[in-house]
Design a binder for these strands. Sequence first.
RNA 1: GGGGAGAUUCCGGAGUGGCCAAACGGGACGGACUGUAAAUCCGUUGGCUCCGCCUUCGGAGGUUCGAAUCCUCCUCUCCCCA
Length: 403
Amino acid sequence: MTHNAPPSPSSAFERISRNVSDIVTEESLRKYLEASQESGRPLRVKFGIDPTFTHVHIGHAVPIRLLRTFQELGHLPVLIIGDGTARLGDPTGRNEQRPPLSLEEVQHNSTTYLDQIGKVLDLSPEVCEVRRNSEWFEEMDFFDCLRLASCGTVARLLERDDFKKRMAERLPVHLHEMHYPIMQGWDSVQVRADVEIGGNDQLFNLHMGRLLQEREGHRPQVCLTTPLLLGTDGQKMSKTYGNHVPLLSEPNDMFGKVMSVTDDQMPDWFRLLTSLEEEEISKILQGHPREAKGRLADEIVTWLHNSAVAKSAAQAFDSQFRKKQVPDDIPECALESNLPLANLLKEAGLVSSTSDARRTIKQGGVKVNGEPAVDPSALIPLGDEPTMIQVGKRRFANIRERS
RNA sequence: GGGGAGAUUCCGGAGUGGCCAAACGGGACGGACUGUAAAUCCGUUGGCUCCGCCUUCGGAGGUUCGAAUCCUCCUCUCCCCA
């Protein structure tokens, strides 16, 4: 990464604030940027990650991109790995209970997490600081905790939407969860954060950092939140809905996923995930939606892989879906000859059970060597020449006889 | 410590002795349509040697010709009071 002559504080402000949903406060952000330039001291920009799960998707990448922007402007990202907070579970999450994580799990999750984040952010020690919050939480005794807890009020916490909602639904809200924002805020005190970045559901937690810093006589951090990126179907992006794009997906997969984004998500995806200028974006969006989406997919695959790979992913996508051709890289396997079709599909791993196979066949979803197959119990002869089986639009296999 | 409520097929959630492999919704899958989608429509959604058979309704027993539904014990969860 190159650090050329630093841009002026005001142009830095423009760049930073382009895609954020809250800034607390604009004025202090401007001031901090100016002061930083005068003193030559980079701003410490904090971002917390929870090592409770390991799959990072491009929705998570939105705040990290902002972190990257700061990094490019010469400031210092400070990543906090919440190995202390992880033991609480995440109160902003769903209502399911998270079992307490073991030390190894946390360890493992943090490294895979960092691997993935490394796609978006330069993690070299010279330009990025990585801390774990167990570092300071482990040292606190019960009275320290009480002192911290006195910073918040129950009323204030109860205002939080997710608590309110869960109370209304008669779901449990555990006492320790109330400490989550306080712990997060304490991180800010510990690392002397000048700025904290989070998703826009994190605003409350970020505010807590300001509060605690002021109590400690520190300069309060600027809170920046980024808009929520919705999933390919327009719902909240989440692994459980299957509408997410993992940061580490294979190029072809990634391209295909982006192509399945609904049209009305496109503007957001362009703004939040590419570095194209607003003018350019609106020009693209005026063209044919399919072209625009192709461009979006190309930008994203280029970003997370490279441009050559993006081009070939585009071609593969085109031939498989637009021209309905068969993909090049069909998985192969070898099986016994003369199995009933339904059993063959199951053995080849194309369906989950023979019953499933029968259903799919009955519905006209199976082709053998390009010909629609209708009889689930037809015996399929195999030979050295592979027999191509297609299930639905996406599942293919080349099967030859096992010798 | 006391008092309630509950555990159903991927998820949510009906069902309170036979008509239950289990309503309905979501998701998923297949088909049609299409711009690759989305939306819409149709169909499927426990397993199998599949027009029949087998195993499911927290776990273990029991009552009955017959239980997801009734009884006993156990495990777990939630709420309220203290």
